[in-house]
Each structure stands twice: as structure tokens, then as C-alpha cells.
Amino acid sequence: MALLKRSYLTLVYLFLYIPILVLIVYSFNAAKYATVWKGATLKWYAKLFENEMLMDAMVNSITVAVTSSIVATAIGTLGALAFYRYRFTGRKPLYAMVYTTMMSPDIVMGISLVCLFVILGLKLGFITLLLAHVTFCLPFVIVTVYARISGFDPAVIDAAKDLGAGEFQIFRHIILPMTAPAVAAGWLLSFTLSLDDVIVSFFVTGPEFEILPLKIYSMVRLGVKPEVNALCTLMFIFTLLSVIAAHYLVKEKTK
């Protein structure tokens, strides 16, 4: 049983990791097209940094991911607080809507947003991409932070109120420090969701503002250059490092 368990787990992990390992190995392969190994090289990395189109797309992607994740985290944290602590008209249906949005297929959101942007007369590009990314990240932040707030002892907030703290002070000195791990987790999730998104971005961006996943999408259909392997390797290492860093940051905070 122990052997069966171990080999089964290993097999599934292999399935999950082999494609990523293949990309990494290929990024150092001197051969351009063949599947054979022709010695190690760093030339694809050098070529990658000379490839302006890819570099531009990467910078665009990172800009959108950083901006949208920060905006989504700010609005989402305040939103979680509002949904938890304040009573206002439409609170329950709106929260249900936020929850459903998290489950709904990306393609539904993509086309509904492109309809809105076209009717509003917004030019598809950076701004529309940003609005869309904030929108699909927002529910994840709200739900993560909300779960954390509802785990608190409400007496702490009442005590602060009795001692004369205003709403902002309660937020600044009690809710924010206590929800910090959830806020950090929500931000990281937003950042990677934004960086990874293909489907929503496909609809809401224009030809002037190209982001990496879409650039790769169009390249894959025409035949990929080995530089892309190098780029993917760098991105994988980058996300891996940030996930590990976030893991430790959150751990430190909760101690």
C-alpha cells in the first residue's frame, strides 16, 4: 500500500511537472528545432533580451499585473470590510454576485466586459485591460479577506469602538494588521491571475497593447521561436520565487 501510494503520487507529480521541466531543458538546448540534445547554450536568453516585441509584451504584462493587483487588493480589502461590518441596501445580493463571479467561466466575463467597453466608447487597450483585470481579481480578494475577518473575535472591534476609535482607526489599527496575511494572499493571487489570464484579456485588449500570454498565443500558432522557452523558464522561476517569498512572509506575520 505504501509503495502504491508513493508511486501514484509520484506519477501525478510527474504529469504536472514534466511539461515545465521540458521547457526549462529546451531553453538551454543548442539545437533549434530538433528534439535532440545538441549541448548547452545560453544563446536563447541573449536573443530573448534582443527581441523587442517579446520584451515589450513582458513589460506590458507586468505593468498590468502590478497595477491591477494593487487596485484590486485596495478595493477588495475595503469591500470585504464593508460587506462584513456595514449594513447597506443590496449588501446580500451584491455579495452573492461577487461570489458567483468567482465561479463563472472567464469567457462570459470577457464578452460582457467587451460589450460594456464598446458601448461606453472606450478604446480597447491598457485602460480596458486594467479595468477587466481588477474586476476578475476583486472577488478573490474580497472572499479571502472576508473569510479572515469573520474569523475574528468581534469583541475586539467593539472594545475599540467603546474606547472611542473611529471607523478609519478601527480599520487602520485593528482590521488591517489582523487581516494582513489574507490581504497579502489576495494580492499574490491577483497578481498571478492577472499575469496568467488569456481568455478575458483576449477580448478586452487592442492591437496596440499586447501582453505576453496573447503574444505567445499568436506565436504558438505560427511556430514558436526558442526564445520563448527561455522566457517561460524565467517566468516560471520568477513566480516560484515570489510564491516561496510570499509563503514565508505570510508565515512570519501570523507568528
Binding site: P19, T35, D196, I216
Partner: peptide, 30 residues
């Protein structure tokens, strides 16, 4: 965490990696 890590990398990139593995002169066939 090991299950979640691949999910943090672009699914499009991973789909593209599958092409390298599965294609006619790809890894499996070779």
C-alpha cells in the same frame, strides 16, 4: 504546495509545452 505551483505559471505556456511533448517529432515519439 507542489500541486498549486504549476497553477501559478501561465496555463498557456504549459499548453505550449504539451505541444513539444506530443507532436509528431516530439519527445514521446522520438
Amino acid at each position: 504546495l507542489l500541486v498549486i505551483i504549476p497553477f501559478w505559471t501561465s496555463s498557456l505556456i504549459r499548453t505550449y509545452a504539451l505541444i513539444i511533448i506530443l507532436k509528431a517529432n516530439g519527445i514521446i515519439n522520438t
